[in-house]
Simulated scan of single mutants.
Amino acid sequence: MLELRSRDHAEKRVRAGVLEQGTTDTLVEAAVGERLLREGLPHRGIELRYGGAGHRIAFEKLVPGRAITVYGQQEVVKDLIAARLADGGDLRFDVDDVALHAIDTDHPYLTFGGERLDCDFIAGCDGFHGVSRPSIPEGVLTEYEREYPFAWLGILARVKPSAEELIYARTERGFALHSMRSPEISRFYLQVAADEDIAEWPDDRIWAELKARLETVPGFVLATGEIIDKGVTPMRSFVAEPMQYGRLFLAGDAAHIVPPTGAKGLNLAVADVRQLTKALVHRYETGSDELLDGYSKACLKRVWRAQHFSWWMTTLLHTFDSDDAYGHRLQLSYLDYVTSSEAAARTLAENYVGLPYGSLE
């Protein structure tokens, strides 16, 4: 494994924190879920808050036996690194000048820092700005992209969560999300302008705006505390297909990005790696390239389902053009439908907790 950043950076960078049922099951199956099961926070519902009321989407009723688990992505990374090193894995951090060669042949190889690594296959799990996708010749990939006219300002705070489950709040001031990472650490997001400068958001302003968007139901009081991390995340959707070329296979953000509203980024990456693992095991056990040849097609079914769900959640809950009265009424109408129709609520629930592996095949 070649990683541009340091191990310390990889293990401390704050990212996603909502694991689908399938992601949790995969980590447990891979024998890296012991700490996850011990420290993760299982959630069996979320709240949609709008119009001065909260509406719970009850996973235990709508999708029995399936839930989400709140467990920080950096904690997953720590567990994976520790397990790989314990097995004698060769993990290289602070690696630069990585280049991919001969990926359309049977003998691809990598060069980095004056070294050469000959490979059977290369998994490009190096994110949107990595070297893997740009190594595919021009004209091979078709890219689909959408940018949203807002961003998320996210904070991590040393304060006990003010609710037991995630709260997705739609207000006239913009969207807000109440989440958590542990019983003592909370995670919050605010919809802000796409070009927002984080320097314009001192802690007092952040808490005031979170209170204005979340304290909209009787009796709810938002607890505040020390903010230990904050930043602005752009909102965009991106898919490159196919997700493979020759002996190079793209996975995660190297191939696709979703807005964080649907909590799908990390989970899609795990689904990609699970599919690639299955295909590689099949190849080495049988000598057949059948599953490797079908890797992109198999992954893209789940990718596009998640793309649609993430787009839907984003357009349902965020404030767009303030002059678009028609769009505003459509949002409220659909929120009323989701919170009053069991069928509509089940659609949200089954996509949020993650469709079972095999269901899209």
Results as ranks from 00 to 15, higher is better:
193 A>T: 14
309 F>Y: 15
166 L>N: 12
214 L>Y: 01
36 L>Y: 12
185 I>N: 09
339 T>K: 05
144 Y>C: 04
317 L>H: 09
292 L>I: 08
102 A>F: 06
112 F>R: 04
165 E>M: 10
233 T>C: 09
151 A>W: 03
350 E>Q: 12
265 G>K: 09
185 I>P: 08
213 R>M: 08
287 G>E: 05
276 L>C: 02
160 K>Q: 12
279 A>N: 14
90 D>F: 06
230 K>M: 06
67 A>R: 12
165 E>H: 11
200 E>D: 13
117 L>N: 09
282 H>T: 09
40 G>I: 11
76 V>C: 14
103 I>V: 14
205 R>F: 04
81 I>Q: 09
186 S>I: 01
129 H>R: 15
341 S>V: 05
144 Y>V: 11
35 R>A: 15
192 V>G: 07
296 S>Y: 02
21 Q>A: 04
299 C>H: 10
247 R>F: 00
178 H>V: 03
54 G>L: 04
146 R>F: 11
49 R>F: 00
49 R>C: 11
274 R>V: 08
74 Q>G: 03
113 G>I: 06
266 L>C: 02
37 L>K: 14
56 R>E: 12
127 G>S: 11
125 C>F: 11
169 A>P: 08
127 G>N: 12
322 S>E: 14
24 T>V: 15
271 A>C: 05
56 R>C: 04
89 G>K: 10
178 H>T: 02
121 F>M: 10
39 E>R: 13
228 I>R: 04
305 R>S: 14
102 A>E: 15
150 F>V: 04
167 I>D: 06
319 T>V: 10
83 A>L: 09
240 A>T: 14
162 S>R: 02
346 R>T: 12
218 P>M: 03
165 E>S: 11
71 Y>H: 06
128 F>N: 13
55 H>E: 10
94 D>V: 01
235 M>L: 15
344 A>F: 03
132 S>L: 01
318 H>Y: 03
203 D>R: 06
279 A>I: 11
352 Y>R: 04
184 E>G: 06
23 T>L: 02
56 R>Y: 10
51 G>D: 05
226 E>C: 02
78 K>I: 09
68 I>A: 08
330 L>D: 10
312 W>P: 00
40 G>V: 09
125 C>G: 13
31 A>K: 15
330 L>N: 10
355 L>K: 12
50 Y>A: 07
141 L>T: 09
278 K>T: 14
90 D>K: 14
345 A>D: 01
198 I>F: 04
